[in-house]
Design a protein around this nucleic acid. Sequence first.
DNA 1: CATGAATGAGCTTTCATTCAT
DNA 2: AATGAATGAAAGCTCATTCAT
Lengths: 189, 189, 189, 189
Amino acid sequence: MVEPHELSNKKEAILYSAFQVFTEKGYHQAKVSEIAERARVGKGTVYEYFDSKEALLIGVIKAGTKYYIEQLNESAEQAVDPLGKLRNILLKNVTILKENQNFRQLINHNFGVNSEQFHLLLQEQRQILFQKIQKILQEAINQQQIKPIDLEIGVRLVFGHIIAMDPEMGNLAEEQINSMIDILFKGLQ
Amino acid sequence: MVEPHELSNKKEAILYSAFQVFTEKGYHQAKVSEIAERARVGKGTVYEYFDSKEALLIGVIKAGTKYYIEQLNESAEQAVDPLGKLRNILLKNVTILKENQNFRQLINHNFGVNSEQFHLLLQEQRQILFQKIQKILQEAINQQQIKPIDLEIGVRLVFGHIIAMDPEMGNLAEEQINSMIDILFKGLQ
Amino acid sequence: MVEPHELSNKKEAILYSAFQVFTEKGYHQAKVSEIAERARVGKGTVYEYFDSKEALLIGVIKAGTKYYIEQLNESAEQAVDPLGKLRNILLKNVTILKENQNFRQLINHNFGVNSEQFHLLLQEQRQILFQKIQKILQEAINQQQIKPIDLEIGVRLVFGHIIAMDPEMGNLAEEQINSMIDILFKGLQ
Amino acid sequence: MVEPHELSNKKEAILYSAFQVFTEKGYHQAKVSEIAERARVGKGTVYEYFDSKEALLIGVIKAGTKYYIEQLNESAEQAVDPLGKLRNILLKNVTILKENQNFRQLINHNFGVNSEQFHLLLQEQRQILFQKIQKILQEAINQQQIKPIDLEIGVRLVFGHIIAMDPEMGNLAEEQINSMIDILFKGLQ
DNA sequence: CATGAATGAGCTTTCATTCAT
DNA sequence: AATGAATGAAAGCTCATTCAT
């Protein structure tokens, strides 16, 4: 485990430390002073790199979702046929959430942050994911792996599955996860 | 639209006013003083009826989820066969969320409230809903309307659909909603 | 032990209940509502009999010091010669304070009450005690039991002894108390 | 007279300003905001140096009693024989209390503060004084300046004298004070 | 670039007191 | 005379942010 202050550059140290603190305590309970301490920098230094506590949250979320989407993309690329890609995305998603429950908490526990910017960012990130899924679904339709459906609906169904398999509701066996995906695919065929 | 202070009894006026304010601003941004003002009572009066700001949030959530679950139950009862009930619940859910977007916000915007009690309450309410769905799925299996599946999986799939049809991601036409439900049912058969 | 609410008339019940609560918690920690409850009357009723919380404290102190001084007087009267009276007063004082430690606390714990009236009252009561002592000392001088001293000094010395024998600093054996009085008398002779 | 804000360091300015306000108004009537204002610092700054309002009171008392006991010690050291030391302590005590009536008020007016810590501190300080007196009395006994008495009693008698000579009951002439001390010594011989 | 001492706006909560019944 | 629901002033404390060094 890397400690925040061991990171080479200060901005990253602050970001990582903020990730930890926001995750553990939630935005409102998190203190800038604690973030600074864990990053082993002065409180003022945090403000050299980020305009405000909220900007810090935004930064953390940005870095987090970037990583998340990259991971999903990578795992998608390891399959060739569209349904294989979709299955990989769904499986990987469970893995990421399970291995990194903090990440989930980071977003959920901070949903209460009433900030236009925060919500726009989350929506934006969701859009990126949605477009990826949409593209895969279109391929699947083109290759007649699933019947032609309204893509809006398709994306939502996949997203619903992502939520349905969230380890926060309790862990699922590999087998159960695959069954759930099978049911989705069967419905779509 | 009824104004909070028009409600006959003070407790209800406070509860309703709190609902509005929590919804609009989120828990942390909400001021007890504003809640009191809108309910046209003194700040102290709020504390006559609720022990703390948090107790007020709990009260609001309790009233809200009670209403929500009652509505879903009622609409379920209007069908006789299990899949009909399930369809009704899913349809009604969309209607409730659409008509009452505040309610969604109330829960989402306050998810960040770091309170044991708050999370327990939400979990408890979700359990009630889950048990209802589980019972319906069992009936559907018994009547051979769907194939015998792991109920855990079944409940999650329905829950995933509830999320997938959330009007917050944009409104869906009646037709689209029904197709989504059809896909679910097809997957389960 | 008599409970406050068993007293025949409401004013006394309130007074006694106030005595208990002020004693146990001190003036600032005492709540009018608790005083009312213990006296088994409504909060409003307290205000029928006393203008304010402070007036209630004054009332309690008045009743308490009246009792205290009466007791000292009575015990003084049980001796005939002045020095005997003085010894009795000093002995009785220890007994009262020991048996009724609450009474001490009532005065000490509320010394912080920053009220002109309160301090005047205490001073007034002290004056009454001082005059009694002064009179006895004068008699003792007249009867040549002690040498003629400045009465101001004499009164203070007796008062100092009262404090010196306070059971709050720890209990003294009967024998120790008498030794202390002997030392005082020897000094005065 | 030095104004609090003229003190070189902030902590001292706050301490002195707190001393004034606690003295003038008593603990409960004192507002942290007023203490801050008089020290010409922000309210938050007070909390940088002291954890709470109560910690501030403790700090003030500590500084005050430290000064008080140091003064008494110093004046004791200016005599060689034990009874001389005792006389010096008693005389100095009157001077301190007279010159610094606030100090007395600080302790008396705050006796009502219902805090374990506060009372422990006062008791502790009283013990220090008592031990000093006890040691002197023992020396006096050893040197046969007074007859061998129970030291517990001796200490109390001296303490009673300290109270008896309190300028709050009215000023005493130098001569009167010395007579009072003479009476004590005569009693002890 | 880096710091952390200083700041003060802003919030929840308590409770003496009032007054309509 | 008796009540207690309603009130709102008042105060301690937190912590994001600033800025002089």
